[in-house]
Simulated assay, not measured.
Amino acid sequence: MALLRDWGLTLGKWVGRPPVRLQQDSGDPEVRRVREAAAAADWATVRTVLEARSESEDRTELLWAVGDTAGVEEWIAPVLEAEPDAPLPRLVAGIRHISWGWEARTGARAKDVSREQFEVFHARLRTAERWLYEVAEQEPGWTSPWYGLQITGRGLQVGQDTARRRFEATVRRDPHHLGAHQQQLQQVCEKWSGSHEEMHAFARESAFGAPGGTSLGQLVAVAHLEHWLALDRGADARYIQRPEVAASLQKAADHSYRHPDFVRRGGWLQVYNTFAMAFSMTGDVASARECFRATEGRVTEFPWYYVNGSDPARAYKQHRAFTGS
Rank of each mutant, 00 (worst) to 15 (best):
W7K: 04
G16K: 04
P19Q: 02
V20C: 09
Q24E: 11
E30S: 08
V34W: 02
R35D: 01
R35G: 05
A37I: 03
A40N: 11
T45Y: 02
R47S: 07
V49G: 07
S56D: 04
E57F: 01
E61H: 02
L62K: 01
E73H: 13
W75K: 09
I76M: 03
P87A: 15
L91V: 12
I95D: 00
R96K: 02
T106E: 08
V120D: 14
R124G: 01
L125S: 00
L125P: 00
A128C: 06
E129R: 09
L132E: 05
E137L: 11
W142E: 07
T143L: 12
W146E: 06
Y147A: 13
Q150P: 01
R154D: 07
G155F: 10
G155C: 09
Q157I: 00
D174K: 13
Q183S: 05
Q184I: 01
C189M: 14
E190W: 12
K191V: 07
K191M: 06
S195Q: 04
M199N: 15
A201Y: 00
A207S: 11
F208E: 06
A210R: 10
P211Q: 13
G212S: 07
H224C: 14
E226F: 15
D232C: 03
G234A: 04
A247E: 12
H259W: 05
H259Y: 05
H259L: 07
P260D: 06
D261G: 03
W268P: 05
A278L: 05
F279G: 11
F279I: 14
A286Q: 15
C291H: 04
C291F: 04
A294S: 10
V299F: 07
V299W: 10
V299D: 10
Y305I: 11
G309A: 08
R314Q: 13
A315D: 09
R320V: 13
R320E: 14
A321H: 06
F322T: 03
G324N: 02
S325K: 10
